[in-house]
Amino acid sequence: MSSSFHVAHHFSDAEQQRESAKLGMWVFLLTEILLFGGVFVAYAVFRVWYPDMFYNAHKALDVTMGTVNTAVLIVSSLTVALGIREIQLGRQKQCTRYLLATIVLACVFLVIKYFEYAHKIHLGQLPGKFYTFDGIAGTNPHVFFSIYFLLTGIHAFHILIGISLLTWVMIKNMKGHFSAQYFTPVEITGLYWHLVDLIWIFLFPLLYLIG
């Protein structure tokens, strides 16, 4: 055993440990997809019920900000992937840099999201009974904003978790816990981050680009 130092007692070798961790994360990601799936189904049902209202309401969203955020997340997926590559090659410093870049991009995403939210709260484009805006034609426009805030809210919550995980992994990396032989936490955090990005890739057209 080359790196028995990192292998927990119940695994027979590092390979088994790494494989297990990866499989575990994939299974967890399945759970996440089903979780979002519920809200996507609600989205589909109400869009079929109120197609015109959805079209009218979606115009209230800022496509520019949405597009910028999409780009930000795509780039962050690239940086985290590069981070994993660096640690696979044993370059801890470079890995830290890429992880930091990912965290910064994630924060940029949240800041932009904050401005979007603030604008909508200001206008009263809010979910359910808090909806006070009256510039959108169609029945029950508050339903659109209920779903908008739910989907983007739960997604933003996942971004927050992602930032915490990335920070934790980055600190461990700076302390020298990872090497070309052992980098599982970096890898599975990256997997998680890709999923968070992927969900946004679905969210963006469904909410911002209704045509």
């Binding site: 759970t31 996440e32 089903l34 979780l35 979002f36 799936g37 519920g38 809200v39 609600a42 979910p127 359910g128 009974k129 808090f130 029950n140 508050h142 339903v143 209920s146 805030f149 739910l150 739960i154």
Partner: peptide
């Protein structure tokens, strides 16, 4: 996870009337 999200929706329904 589907019951999870259902309960979240019910929670928001009660707390903030998302409708």
């Amino acid at each position: 996870p589907v019951i999870g999200i259902t309960m979240v929706l019910l929670l928001f329904e009660r707390l903030s009337g998302i409708g």
